[in-house]
Amino acid sequence: MSQPTDQPSNTGRREFLAGATGVAAATVVAPGVFLQSVANAAPRDTAVSSDVRYGMLIDTSKCADGCNDCVTACDKENGLDMLVKPEGADDELWDMQRPRWIRTVKLRNNLTGHVSTLPMMCQHCEHPPCVDVCPTGASFRRADGIVMVDRHTCIGCRYCMMACPYNARSFIHEAVQFKLTATPRGKGCVESCNLCVQRRDNGGTTTACQDACKQGAIVFGDLKDPNSAVSQAMSKYPTVQIRADLKLNTGVRYTDV
């Protein structure tokens, strides 16, 4: 097993200029004819690099039992709330199979009886089992640590769903009628939390779940940047990786579990 790659290192780290505005530009092809350029907020123009590793720290002591705010926000951000139950479908089955990128989970310590409530999503492993088992390379880990599915190459075999120890992946069972431009989806592919990849690529600094949490239980950021809020918090509090015994080196960490 290789060295964990999430140790703070600042070498060659690009300062990301959030908030810079794209300027509409045009190139002349013939007198009076300009090729069009599309303006955008602060989109990336270089490939993501492993100078960054995105991750999250979740303080479960702040997670109120029954609170669902992060799940609701995630559903909205990623168009999951637009999916409709197929006509005549069984309620229970729909509830079990409907795509969710975050689930709220209760963990009970069998020795002490202590119960913690926490949001469970893709843990963005450094050694992701979903990527290992994928026969087409659709399941991949982006250079900046985001584990995701390229749905253009996903064949819907669902090996990854079986391989994931966190039950973090969903399958789209039915044709999708309503979708957002930002989050395309269709029948027959697997998907999961991608750390709000559109926000990452467009200069955003937060995730939807983090923004929605009134308790401030979720801190998102670059695990390799010692000055990021998430690294700072991790240096102050004892944190755990769930199922650390599997040695996947997850990018999502928890306190007070």
Binding site: Q36, N40, P43, R44, V48, R142, H152, V197
Partner: peptide, 23 residues
């Protein structure tokens, strides 16, 4: 475009599918 956007995160582009549709 689809490859470099999905795998490399490059969004500053004139060739996005979303862009074709928008225009």
């Amino acid at each position: 475009q689809r490859h470099i956007t999905v795998h490399e995160g490059i969004r500053k582009t004139d060739n996005s599918l979303a862009g074709c549709i928008d225009c």
